Computed example of a mutant assay.
Amino acid sequence: MATLLNPYISFRDTAREAMDFYQSVLGGEVKRNTFAEFQVSEDPAEADKIMHSQLETPGGLTLMAADVPNGQDHSVGDNIAISLSGEDESELRGYFEGLSAGGTVQVPFEQAPWGDMFGMFTDKFGIPWMVNGVAPEA
């Protein structure tokens, strides 16, 4: 798998509906995970929210989206980040370290509950990033 660079959109309770819409227009397949699947929220009202979804189209487009947890701010217009994902952990760690220099790290690049290496930061220009290193399959 080559490293992907794609948009990641945050929604307030409408990620499922939005991704279904984008799929209806762009085609492809949507994969989704809820907050409950990865036990990342103790709030029962968030159990069915989308923690992560990914649309991949036959033409090679990738779009990712999630619902924002109830306790986090959400502002339309400021609800998009850049996602880097792939299998080469050392390459992705280098991108994480380089791009986060001078910025603010919200989540260090470390193992996430879903088994991948993951981190989040805002770069020195105010752009939010997410980096995900896919765990090798056993």
Rank of each mutant, 00 (worst) to 15 (best):
M117F: 12
G119Q: 03
P113W: 10
G119S: 02
E87C: 01
I80K: 13
I82L: 15
R93Q: 14
F109W: 04
P108V: 06
G119E: 04
G86Y: 04
T104A: 13
G94Q: 12
S100K: 04
I80T: 15
V107Y: 05
Y95L: 11
G86D: 06
P108L: 04
F96P: 01
E91Y: 00
S85N: 13
Y95S: 03
L99Y: 07
G103P: 00
F96C: 00
G94W: 10
E87T: 12
Y95I: 09
V105G: 06
A81C: 14
M117E: 10
F121K: 03
P113D: 11
F96R: 01
G98I: 07
Q111F: 05
G103C: 03
W114N: 09
G103F: 04
F96D: 02
I82T: 15
L99F: 10
V107T: 14
F96M: 00
M120I: 12
L92R: 01
V107P: 01
A101G: 00
G119M: 02
S90E: 15
S100H: 05
Y95Q: 11
Y95A: 07
D123K: 04
L99T: 04
E110V: 14
S90L: 11
S100D: 03
L92Q: 02
V105F: 05
G102A: 07
G102R: 08
A81T: 15
M117A: 13
M120P: 07
M117I: 13
F109I: 04
V105W: 06
E87A: 11
L92M: 02
G115I: 09
G94E: 13
E91M: 02
M120S: 13
M120F: 06
E97M: 07
P113H: 11
E110G: 10
G86R: 02
Q111S: 08
G98A: 10
G102V: 08
A101P: 00
M120N: 13
G103S: 06
F118P: 02
E89M: 07
Q106I: 10
F96N: 02
F109M: 05
S90R: 09
Y95C: 00
F121M: 02
Q106Y: 08
G98V: 06
V107Q: 11
M117S: 14
R93K: 14
W114I: 11
L84I: 09
Y95F: 12
R93A: 10
A101E: 14
V107W: 00
V105I: 15
G94I: 08
F118S: 03
D116Y: 08
A112I: 09
E91H: 06
F118C: 07
A81P: 13
L84Q: 04
I80F: 14
E89F: 06
G115K: 10
P113F: 15
G102M: 07
W114E: 10
V105K: 06
G103I: 01
G94A: 09
F109S: 01
I82A: 13
L84S: 05
G86L: 04
Y95D: 01
S83G: 04
I82V: 15
P108S: 05
I80L: 15
Y95V: 05
A81N: 15
